[in-house]
């Protein structure tokens, strides 16, 4: 579904991504792990077209490197950024409505689905985005992207700053998303949730992929964990 080959990206003179290779199949949950600052978020931003790419990004057989972010979104890729980008002047409901690419768009996710998954969002639907809690913002940003009906979604640090009970809920949500045929690239720092729900894992280090394998492979490779994940 998504094949990234030799992807490079720069911030000014800094060479952030140094030849990243990724492969994600339909309906898979794949995690992208690594320490802070190794380029995981930049990988998502570059796939989404928000950072200029050098290299190849093939999505459903089409080269999408160089397309604009809205064109990439229209091809079925969704992005949930780490900073959440909740629109503070709009209500929760208006934030969700803007997730739809057009008024007529049909989505496998309806407002009812979203409110069933997170009843709290329905209670807060008329509250401005700037006034809701961090956990609610996290739910809203994921649901807003789902409203655009992506076939492939990149979720950057969804559990950051959330209470353990909500982290559990987040894991279940990601499994629900995948169960509806959406491929997921999960960028995470918490190894436990990634090991629990992912089919495959990538570890990034210094702008490159340094490990690729299944959760079992990683569980048995203490050296890799020690070198690239443990603090």
């Amino acid at each position: 579904m998504l094949k990234v080959k030799q992807l490079n990206a720069y911030y000014g003179n800094s060479h952030i991504l140094q030849g990243v290779d990724l492969n994600i199949e339909k309906g898979e949950i794949v995690s992208l792990l690594g320490r802070n600052g190794v380029g995981r978020s930049t990988t998502c931003m570059t796939i989404m077209g928000l950072v200029p790419p050098k290299g190849s990004i093939i999505y459903n057989g089409e080269e999408i490197a160089g397309l604009k972010p809205h064109e990439i979104a229209h091809r079925g890729i969704g992005f949930v950024p780490e900073d959440r980008w909740i629109f503070p002047g709009l209500t929760v409901m208006q934030n969700l409505i803007l997730g739809q690419k057009s008024r007529k768009q049909k989505s496998r996710w309806t407002l009812d689905d979203v409110f069933t998954l997170f009843p709290r969002l329905e209670e807060r639907s008329n509250v401005h985005g700037g006034l809701i809690s961090g956990g609610e913002k996290q739910m809203l940003t994921i649901c807003r992207t789902l409203m655009g009906d992506p076939d492939f979604i990149m979720i950057d640090e969804p559990t950051e700053g959330l209470a353990p009970r909500v982290v559990e809920q987040m894991g279940q949500l990601i499994e629900t998303i995948a169960a509806r045929g959406v491929s997921v690239l999960l960028v995470e720092q918490k190894l436990s949730i990634a090991l629990k729900i992912s089919r495959r894992l990538y570890i990034m280090g210094q702008g490159r992929i340094v490990f690729s394998g299944t959760p079992d492979d990683l569980k048995h490779d203490r050296e890799i964990r020690k070198e690239w994940l443990e603090v």
């Binding site: 979104a73 980008w85 503070p88 709009l90 934030n95 803007l98 690419k101």
Partner: peptide, 24 residues
């Protein structure tokens, strides 16, 4: 809808763009 897109782009133009709206 276009008004909402404008309001949203006041704070996070890149976010609006990534949702599939042609911000330019």
């Amino acid at each position: 809808r276009i008004g909402l897109i404008i309001q949203a782009a006041l704070t996070h133009p890149e976010g609006v763009n990534a949702l599939g709206h042609n911000v330019p």
